[in-house]
Simulated assay, not measured.
Amino acid sequence: MMNILITSAGQRVSLVKSFQKELTAIDKKAKVFTADFNPMLAPACHISDGYFAVPKVTDQEYIGHLIKSCLNNDIKLVIPTIDTELNILSTNISEFEKKGIHVVVSDASFIKKCRDKRKTNELFERYGIDTPTQFNQNNLEFPVFVKPYDGSRSEGIFTAFEPSDIKDEHTNNKKLMYMEYISDEEYDEFTIDCYYDKNSTLKCVVPRKRILVRAGEVNKGVTKKNIIVNEFTKKLAKLEGARGCLTIQVFLHKNKDIMKGIEINPRFGGGYPLTYLSGANYTKWVIEEYLLNKEVTDFSDWESDLLMLRYDAEVLVSNYDK
């Protein structure tokens, strides 16, 4: 049985549905399971083929519990979805492999560079991609963009327009980075879904222009075939340690060929459904590469200028009494 598990499923209903569609097209009896710390309150768990609760990622029992649940449900492939679980899964990947379970995750060393935005900047620059200028507290140029070096979901970020906006709580916070302010009047922000095969070779690049972001995830976006595709294909063709779907964020100048890298998330992002619906079928490629041992070929025939407009929908659960 080629069952799949999507961890920290939360609200990733579209991601689960994409795996259900692609998996059953290959094996009608195969199932897509989900796991979450509180599955009863996770919408994606209620539309999957089965779910179970897991301890917090920081719990020492997490890996053992997850492996046991995989074995009990004939799960052969694990798809992580949040930043905090990536390092522990990558560090323990051999424990899963011993049990015949594949985990689609990048190398631990690469993940650490992605989690620390300072190291991410160094990574971009090593591959020839510019980044916003970084300042220290003694040479700030206002306005300045402030963010934690290990943050996610846009938490803790703000723009300081003058020195009085920098409070003692900020100067005492060693986790804050001070970056060049990038004006949305000059630049558009893009999230790029990249697919890297088992050999860390780039197979597909789909830039998504972020029109509206809510809680750190794209609420409205549009696919664009632009200079980003050429730049990534040329400069990031081989990204050592990267595997599976990566979401890379950049700023692209509206009128000039200027691109600045800002973030790398080595996992399926919240806006991936737009990439999937544009024809770049990363879901299918993951299944074929990891479960069927097929080689993924280069792909560029996805639909450009495809607009995604998201809305809230309901998942109803009967007999809830907690």
Rank of each mutant, 00 (worst) to 15 (best):
M1A: 13
T191R: 04
E289C: 04
Y181A: 04
F161R: 14
I248H: 06
K113V: 01
R115Y: 03
N139Y: 01
L236N: 07
I211D: 14
T275R: 09
M40L: 13
K260I: 03
T131L: 08
T84V: 05
K31Y: 10
L71R: 14
E141P: 04
H46P: 01
K117T: 05
V296E: 09
I101D: 09
E125C: 14
L176V: 04
P207Q: 10
R153F: 14
S14G: 08
T81W: 04
L66A: 01
L316W: 04
I79P: 11
G151Y: 09
L15I: 12
G269E: 05
V13T: 13
K238W: 03
V317H: 09
Q60G: 00
D312M: 12
K167S: 15
I248M: 13
V250I: 12
Y51H: 15
N38F: 06
K17T: 00
F37H: 05
K147I: 04
E289S: 10
S106A: 15
H65G: 00
Y187L: 05
Y51N: 15
K256T: 09
Y311F: 11
M179N: 14
S109M: 10
L277F: 09
I6F: 08
V250P: 02
Y276T: 00
I262Y: 01
Y290Q: 02
S304C: 11
L236S: 05
Q60F: 11
K198H: 11
L41A: 06
I211N: 15
V218P: 06
D188Q: 07
L292A: 08
E155I: 15
Y272Q: 00
N139T: 00
R118D: 11
D107K: 15
E295A: 11
K98W: 01
D197P: 10
L140D: 10
N87R: 04
G271L: 10
T159G: 08
G261M: 05
H253M: 01
V315W: 04
E314Y: 10
N3F: 11
I157R: 14
T120L: 02
T91C: 00
P39Y: 01
L123I: 07
R210W: 00
K117Q: 05
L274S: 10
K56L: 13
T34L: 06
T171V: 14
A313L: 07
K260V: 03
M2K: 11
L202Y: 06
F124M: 10
K76I: 03
K254E: 02
L15A: 03
H46Q: 08
G151C: 09
G100T: 02
M177V: 05
K21I: 07
P273M: 02
T84M: 02
S48W: 05
N281H: 14
Y196G: 03
I211F: 06
M40P: 00
S106K: 10
